[in-house]
């Protein structure tokens, strides 16, 4: 069975899709695109599509990943085009490679996030970031399925900075002056999410943006030892031969 690895984006209004919404949409798109997806055996067969670390509802992403098992070999470029055409605009297929060995999810060691904060004073953001980075431990709380959980939001954050310029747009339709934070977070359990980092900023520096942030995941992948940023998780698959 050939396995195809797909990088896709969740943009604009479609950032409000939940993980379940996406998996239904992908199943239908695969069918519409005529991709010969393999099915699990059993009484109610399921298409073999697996997802790695989906971004939360309401968060946009330029780097979501999934893997499709197919019955007969497919040309990854063709799959990219067909699948993209079959998904609604806003769920956009960016890249498809044929999988070599290994587990894709294991390669997604960290994420780079962008947070756009409308109506925030840049100087105040700078100060809050500095205080956050200066701390060794920033305990935050989040309601999880198992109840309220306390955990550290500091150690997983590899870098956090206020960046200049418009950055990559998340397809946000509201144009408003805003401060842009960019951060790289190592994937851990419990996962430290952008809103956890924001809560950390509030706890250490009293930083409280007036309206909810527009968040985009810019990249996901193995954390590069040199740059500290996520590298291309498909590099290994591609190295298997240029297709």
């Amino acid at each position: 069975m050939q396995r195809l690895r797909v990088r896709y984006a969740k943009r604009g209004r479609l950032r409000f899709t939940s993980h379940r919404d996406i998996s239904r949409a992908v199943e239908r798109a695969v069918r519409r695109a005529g991709i010969p997806v393999a099915y699990s055996a059993g009484f109610s067969p399921h298409p073999k599509i697996s997802y790695a670390g989906a971004a939360p509802t309401g968060v946009a992403s330029e780097a979501e990943y999934l893997e499709i098992g197919v019955n007969r070999p497919c040309d990854p470029r063709r799959v990219r085009d067909d699948l993209d055409a079959s998904l609604p605009p806003g769920l956009d297929v960016l890249d498809v490679v044929e999988a070599r060995d290994g587990n894709l999810a294991d390669r997604l060691e960290g994420s780079m996030w962008e947070l756009r904060l409308p109506g925030v004073d840049p100087a105040e953001a700078e100060r809050a970031v500095k205080e956050f980075l200066a701390a060794d431990l920033v305990e935050v709380e989040r309601l999880t399925k198992k109840g309220m959980r306390r955990f550290d939001a500091r150690q997983a954050v590899r870098s956090l900075a206020v960046v200049e310029g418009p950055g990559i747009t998340a397809g946000q339709e509201t144009v408003q002056p805003c401060v842009i934070l960019r951060m790289v977070v190592r994937h851990e359990t419990p996962a430290v999410r952008p809103d956890d980092a924001l809560m950390g900023l509030r706890l250490v520096a009293g930083f409280a943006p007036p309206s909810p942030p527009a968040v985009t995941r810019l990249a996901q992948g193995p954390l590069d030892a040199m740059t500290g940023e996520p590298a291309d998780p498909f590099a290994f698959d591609r190295a298997g031969g240029d297709r």
């Binding site: 209004r13 479609l14 409000f16």
Partner: peptide
């Protein structure tokens, strides 16, 4: 972002 199942309101 403040409501349940926001996707139902976005169309598309």
């Amino acid at each position: 972002p403040k409501v349940q199942k926001p996707i139902q309101y976005v169309g598309g």
